[in-house]
């Protein structure tokens, strides 16, 4: 089975994000970059499936030079091949990114394309479904359980308060969600072996972004805590605040 895993390099979850001087992006200087945690699930799943179906895993990643370290970590986990997709400009619009990925994916004849359900930096959560349309193959998104046979997959995808069960034929796309698996650790052996794998480079022209960033800002400061009221009478107001002000419950 020929498996592709699309991965992205993102800042560590513990990173303190600082807005850059021109307020158009963030300061990348002191950031520790990692492999997107959802993509780690995708790599793990790819490796598991490859082991079970004597397949091969190719990781693809689009971005500047620094992303090779994310590619290396996927290789260190056990992926067999890697393609670094270089572009004339760095797309910020997932539609453009997906177009670039699609160009490379089409050439690869993959049976299964895996990717994380979202990247934890720009949080768009768009690439999987867009690829499904662009490549004209089915996609099960936000998947927490996956079974793969020679020609089809059965997946459970998370929805509010439950799951949707999905069936589709291969080739197909799956975007991965926590709970699907426990990603393995790269061993020193894997890390050293990964060094010897040549990362293929593909140069792709990407369409123009249709999303324009006007400004990046910090969220407004947290207001000082408040006593909503006394006793059970205060509950309606508390619930209102949680829904409308904090927006943490629905």
């Amino acid at each position: 089975m020929n498996i592709a895993v699309c991965i992205k390099q993102v800042p560590d979850t513990e990173t303190k994000v600082r807005v850059s001087g021109d307020k158009k992006w963030i300061e990348e200087g002191e950031i520790n970059f990692i492999l997107n945690p959802y993509d780690e699930l995708a790599v793990e799943e790819g490796l598991k499936i490859a082991e079970a179906h004597s397949g091969e895993v190719t990781v693809l990643s689009l971005g500047p030079d620094r992303i090779t370290s994310a590619i290396r970590s996927a290789l260190a986990m056990g992926a067999n091949k890697a393609i670094h997709i270089k572009t004339d400009k760095n797309p910020l619009d997932p539609m453009a990114t997906a177009e670039a990925l699609a160009q490379v994916l089409r050439e690869g004849n993959y049976d299964l394309i895996l990717l994380g359900k979202q990247a934890i930096d720009d949080d768009h959560q768009q690439i999987g479904p867009i690829l499904s349309e662009k490549l004209g193959i089915p996609a099960a998104n936000v998947v927490t359980k996956l079974e793969v046979s020679a020609d089809k997959i059965t997946a459970e995808r998370q929805i509010e308060g439950g799951f949707e069960k999905i069936e589709c034929a291969l080739p197909a796309i799956v975007t991965t969600q926590r709970g699907l698996n426990e990603p393995r650790y790269a061993s020193l052996k894997g890390i050293m072996a990964a060094k010897k794998i040549q990362i293929e480079e593909k140069i792709v022209t990407v369409p123009d972004d249709k999303i324009e960033i006007l400004e990046i800002n910090y969220p407004p400061e947290k207001p000082p805590g408040k006593i909503v009221g006394e006793g059970a009478d205060a509950v309606p107001e508390l619930i209102r605040l949680l829904k409308e002000e904090a927006k943490v419950i629905s």
Partner: peptide
């Protein structure tokens, strides 16, 4: 530089482990 890249991966693995 290459060793530093390796080292970062190794540290990452150690942290997770």
């Amino acid at each position: 530089k290459e060793e530093e890249e390796n080292l970062n991966l190794i540290r990452d693995t150690i942290r997770k482990f």
